[in-house]
């Protein structure tokens, strides 16, 4: 028998916050996945909104490419406010 598909579950703890990945589960379709997410991951008032995404639909970056993907930003310190020198007399900026 085919395996019941895997889904990733994202929950928003309350309005104003982003949905956050909380785990995964198995369900045959999206409706059942949503209900299972509710039954499995919100038993203690963990949130008020749920997303489910088929795990196969997620494209992830390759850890072998971590250096080329993410290191080049390391020396672009002019993107951060602390790079610029403003005299203290100017006040908070």
């Amino acid at each position: 028998m085919a395996e019941t598909p895997l889904w990733e579950v994202f929950i928003r703890p309350r309005n104003g916050l982003a949905h956050k990945h909380v785990g995964s589960l198995h369900a045959a379709d999206a409706v059942m996945a949503l209900q299972a997410a509710r039954d499995v991951y919100t038993r203690r008032g963990e949130g008020n909104s749920v997303w489910v995404v088929p795990s196969v639909a997620i494209t992830a970056s390759d850890p072998d490419h971590t250096d080329e993907m993410f290191e080049p930003t390391g020396d672009k310190i002019y993107r951060h406010p602390t790079f610029y020198e403003i005299p203290e007399d100017v006040g908070h900026m």
Binding site: M1, A2, T4, A27, A28, D29, M32
Partner: peptide, 8 residues
């Protein structure tokens, strides 16, 4: 489980 998959 088979029924759920078949329906999907």
């Amino acid at each position: 489980r088979e029924a759920a998959l078949a329906h999907a």
